Amino acid sequence: MAWENHTLNSNFILLGIFDHSPTHIFLFSLVLGIFTVAFMGNTIMVLLIYLDTQLHTPMYLLLSQLSLMDLMLICTTVPKMTFNYLSGKKSISLAGCGTQIFLYVSLLGAECFLLAAMAYDRYVAICHPLRYSILMSQKICCLMAVSSWVVGSFDGIIVIAVALSFPYCGSREIPHFFCDVPALLTLSCTKTLLFERLMFICCVIMLLFPVAVIIASYVHVIMAIICMGSGEGRRKAFATCSSHLMVVGMYYGAAMFIYMRPVSDRSPTQDKMVSAFYTILTPMLNPLIYSLRNKEVARAFMKVLGKDKSGE
C-alpha cells in the first residue's frame, strides 16, 4: 500500500535540459535539427539495405540493425522532450517513465552486443577472407543480430522490474530530460545500494565484455592490415574498420562514463550533457560515418535516385 501511495498516484516531473532563454531556444532548435538528420539518415540506411539486393550481406545486415536501433533510441527520448518543452508540461506518467527506461536500456544493451558482432565480422572478413562465407553465413549473422536484441531486452526487463520496485517520494522531480535510471534512483525513499551494485555488474557484462571482443578482434585486424602487401587493400581495410572504431569509441566511452560511476559521484549537468551526446548526437553521426565513407552505400543511394551510372 505504501508503494502505491508513493509511486502509482503521482507522475514524475522531467526538469529537462532547456529553458526559454535565447541561447537555449537556439540549442533546442539545434537538437531538433540533429533529430531530423538522425531520423532521416537512419531511415534511409535501413531502406537502402532492405531494397538493394547487393547490400544483402552480413556486414550490411548488421549495419541495418544498428541504424534501426539508433532510430528507435532517438525516438525514445527526443519526441517526449520536445513535447514537454513546447507545451510547457513537464510531467511523465509511471507507465511512460517505465517504457522509456525499458526501451532505452534494451536498445543500449542490444547495440553494445551488435557492435561486438560487427567487430567480429570485420575480423573474419580481413583475417579469414576465404572462410568468410562459412564463419559469417547468413544464418550466423541473423543469430548474432537476434541475440543482440534478446540480450538487450532481457537487460531492460531486469532493470525496469527492479527500478520500479522502489518507492519514490519527495519532489518527484527527475533532473534529466528523460527517465534515466541513475537520475530516477536519487528520488527513491529507500536505499538503492544493492541495485546500484546489480546495475554495475550488468554494465560489466553489457559494456566490458563486448569491448573485450572488439579489442581482441581489432588487434588481429590491425596486425593483418600491417602485413598486407597491397597498398590499396590496406587502405580499403583501414577505411572500413576506422568507421566502426569511430562509432565504438564515441558510444562506449559515453556509456561507461554514465553507468560505471557511483550515484554519489554523479553530476546532473554532466549526466545530461553526456546522455544528450550518445542518445541524440551519436545516432546522427552513425549513418553519416558509414554512408560518407562507404562507396556501396553511396552507389545504392544513387541507384534509388535513378542516377546510378553503372546501369544496374
Rank of each mutant, 00 (worst) to 15 (best):
V46N: 02
V46I: 10
V46G: 11
L47C: 14
L47Y: 13
L47G: 06
L48S: 09
L48T: 00
I49W: 05
I49N: 11
Y50S: 12
Y50L: 15
Y50P: 00
L51H: 13
L51T: 09
L51C: 13
L51K: 15
D52W: 01
T53G: 04
Q54E: 15
H56I: 02
T57A: 08
T57Y: 08
T57C: 00
P58W: 08
M59P: 00
Y60F: 12
Y60G: 04
Y60S: 07
L62C: 13
L62W: 05
L62F: 10
L62T: 06
S64R: 14
S64K: 08
S64T: 05
Q65T: 13
L66F: 13
S67I: 04
S67R: 07
S67K: 04
S67A: 15
L68S: 11
L68K: 08
L68V: 04
M69T: 10
M69P: 04
L71K: 01
L71N: 11
M72Y: 10
M72R: 05
M72L: 15
M72N: 06
L73E: 04
L73P: 06
L73S: 07
L73I: 07
L73N: 10
I74V: 14
I74T: 00
C75T: 12
C75G: 02
T76G: 01
T77N: 09
T77M: 09
T77H: 03
V78L: 02
P79E: 01
P79M: 03
P79N: 08
K80A: 15
K80S: 12
M81Y: 00
M81F: 12
T82W: 06
T82I: 14
F83C: 07
F83W: 13
F83V: 14
Y85K: 00
Y85G: 11
Y85N: 03
Y85F: 15
S87R: 01
S87N: 11
G88V: 02
K89D: 15
K90H: 12
S91M: 04
S91N: 15
I92E: 04
I92V: 13
I92Q: 05
S93V: 11
A95T: 13
A95Y: 03
A95H: 08
G96W: 01
G96D: 09
G96N: 05
C97A: 13
C97K: 05
C97Q: 00
G98T: 05
T99Q: 07
T99A: 15
T99P: 04
T99F: 01
T99E: 10
Q100F: 06
Q100N: 08
I101K: 00
I101W: 00
I101E: 01
F102G: 07
F102A: 07
L103Y: 04
L103Q: 10
Y104F: 14
V105K: 11
S106Q: 03
S106H: 06
S106D: 03
L108I: 14
L108K: 09
L108S: 11
L108Q: 05
